[in-house]
Amino acid sequence: MPASKVTIDATDSLSADDFKAVFRGHPGGVSVITADAGDGPVALTATSVASISVDPPLLVFSISALSSAADVLSRAATIVVHSLDVHDLEVAKLGATSGIDRFAQSQSWTRLSTGETVFDNVRAWVRCDVIQRIQAGTSTVIVARALQAHIERDAQPGELGDALVYHNRSWHHLNENSRLNG
């Protein structure tokens, strides 16, 4: 049985709670972003990562000013975006947990020869140059140019692989049972 319909009246703008309610029902792919501006690495889990151009190769994501990683991401020249699948759920949870040292030995990580921090054995990662920061409300939108990538586990075109998505405050695994044929 479908959930009841809810209509939110128009005002100058939606409340934060109403806006969150709209996007809770919009699933997002899961990434972990790492950065280091010289004070030690930070990591955060994000569902806002999107590719915006292939030539040049650009991606975009946003970060809330309330995030513990916001200060470092406002200063870091480079970042690493880890594209996760279901095998990387613990890394996703690690980046989403506040108040902990995300680089304690609970997860295996290394530094690239260029200095960036990467989590080992994740589905894929891309090292990027930050080329633009745009203030948008209480968040910063970061545009980055891809410099280097590594793919540990790849799905063939048209296959689901083991995709990890976040939807309505919980983790989900896309698989053959979730595929819609149309």
Rank of each mutant, 00 (worst) to 15 (best):
A65F: 00
Q135V: 12
G99A: 00
D9T: 09
S113H: 07
L112V: 03
V80G: 03
S53M: 05
H87R: 12
V122L: 04
V118K: 06
D88G: 04
S83M: 15
L164Y: 00
W109G: 02
A92S: 08
E176T: 15
A155H: 04
S31M: 09
R145I: 01
P2H: 12
A76V: 09
D12P: 00
S48W: 13
V81T: 10
N177L: 13
V165A: 05
S31N: 15
A69W: 05
I142R: 06
A10W: 14
A65E: 09
D154H: 11
V72I: 12
F19S: 05
L58V: 05
C128F: 04
R102S: 02
G115H: 06
L73T: 06
A46W: 08
S108G: 09
D154T: 10
V30H: 08
T97L: 04
D129V: 04
A76H: 06
A76K: 02
T78P: 01
S74N: 11
D39L: 13
A69G: 07
D55Q: 14
G158W: 09
N168D: 15
L174F: 14
N168C: 07
V6M: 06
S98C: 03
Q148E: 15
L84D: 03
A146P: 01
I79K: 07
L58M: 02
R75T: 04
A35G: 03
D154P: 08
A69C: 10
I33D: 03
V165T: 11
L112A: 07
W109Q: 05
Q105L: 13
D162W: 00
K5M: 14
A46C: 12
S62F: 10
L73Y: 06
F61M: 14
D154R: 14
N177Y: 09
S62T: 13
H167M: 10
A92D: 06
D88K: 03
G137V: 11
G40Y: 00
T140P: 11
L160C: 13
C128P: 00
L59R: 04
S178C: 12
A10C: 15
G25C: 07
S170R: 12
A144D: 13
V122T: 14
G115E: 09
N121T: 12
A10K: 15
G182E: 13
